[in-house]
Nucleic acid binder design. Structure first.
Lengths: 183, 183
DNA sequence: TCAATAACGAACAAGTTGTTCGGTTATATT
DNA sequence: AATATAACCGAACAACTTGTTCGTTATTGA
């Protein structure tokens, strides 16, 4: 609605991302955020109940973007990635995550994995359930659905973390290959 | 050495465990710990540099215990678990972790997974390298060693978390079965 | 017994979170 | 263009953390 709201919200989110690229989540203080964003203290708390909510909102924006890209398969030029090849879903995710490297991936590096993971898992559950990805068909019959979902998303996250930390030079395709074929 | 030191150390560790069973790591404050342990503030900081170090020490004690149990295969009565059956290592771990359920497993429930995981991974690396577990032989040739180690320990942790959260009634044997056969 | 050493606990600085409130500025509407 | 509304400002605030200091007291091991 109000232009001021959007502006302030974006300033805060960008300041947050900027700070997250320099230090870990728990090391970022509200004081630093409002200083970086050039925003009043009361304003911050008018927008975000707490720092955790800020992270959650950030995750929400990121995943909304990523998953929107995945679901919009009817776009013209984007058919390159959005095809019916069975393992394209995860490649797609790896590609998007790699693109925004410095901004997004820092969210995985430190102790704040928990919140990120929680949000990611929700989305991934949806994705796995609603898709016909090869991953879904690979589920062994002797494990419960929830175990399999949990397993897949955990492996995805750990692969992502390993990628960033150990071998950032590898391509999304190679990482996808590791991911799919170890499962 | 000094009896007082051991006593204080144990009081602090026990107070910490007690508090961890009620609330999450980040919600536990040093003030609460020293109050529960009946120990002076300065004393706490004489023993542990910081709260993170306290957790690390706790992890160290736990894992030393668990891994000692695994390595001491020459005990008399304990041959039940410590055999040369290929997948006994992880079953062993699941059993030990299940035993101390309320104390240890709470460490995995919340946002402090990171520190726990870090410490666990160190130990697991050692274990995987030094053992001839079936897990080691299952490594696909196309992935690097470090990726595989990371993968296995991640899956172990996520299985553990799923176990606690979703199906605590399952036996260690069943969980081990899930774990081994999805990898 | 006695010197060393650990624990006590109060007080402290420095930093953090989240709230309040009166004043200022931008916005949407008329 | 004028105005009511809503957002922002920012200073001040209470409450709580962390980690340190230091003089005093109690325990230990030799």
């Amino acid at each position: 609605m109000d232009r001021r709201q959007k502006k302030t919200r974006e300033l805060i989110l960008k300041a947050f991302i900027k700070l997250l690229s320099k230090k870990s989540y728990s090391a970022v203080t509200v004081g630093q955020i409002i200083q970086t964003a050039n925003v009043g203290r009361a304003t911050f708390y008018a927008h975000f109940e707490t720092k955790d909510y800020l992270l959650k909102e950030l995750c929400k924006e990121l995943f909304d973007h990523v998953f929107d890209c995945y679901l919009n398969t009817n776009n013209d030029q984007q058919g390159l990635f959005c095809c019916d090849a069975p393992d394209s879903t995860f490649l797609h995710l790896f590609i998007h995550l790699k693109k925004n490297d410095n901004n997004i991936l820092k969210l995985l590096t430190s102790e704040n994995t928990h919140l990120f993971m929680e949000y990611f898992q929700e989305n991934l559950n949806q994705l796995i359930i609603s898709s016909n990805d090869i991953i879904k068909q690979k589920k062994p019959s002797f494990v419960p659905d929830s175990y399999w979902t949990n397993h897949v998303s955990s492996c995805f996250i750990s692969t992502l973390k390993w990628w960033i930390k150990e071998s950032p030079a590898l391509s999304p395709e190679e990482i996808t290959n590791y991911f799919i074929n170890t499962i």
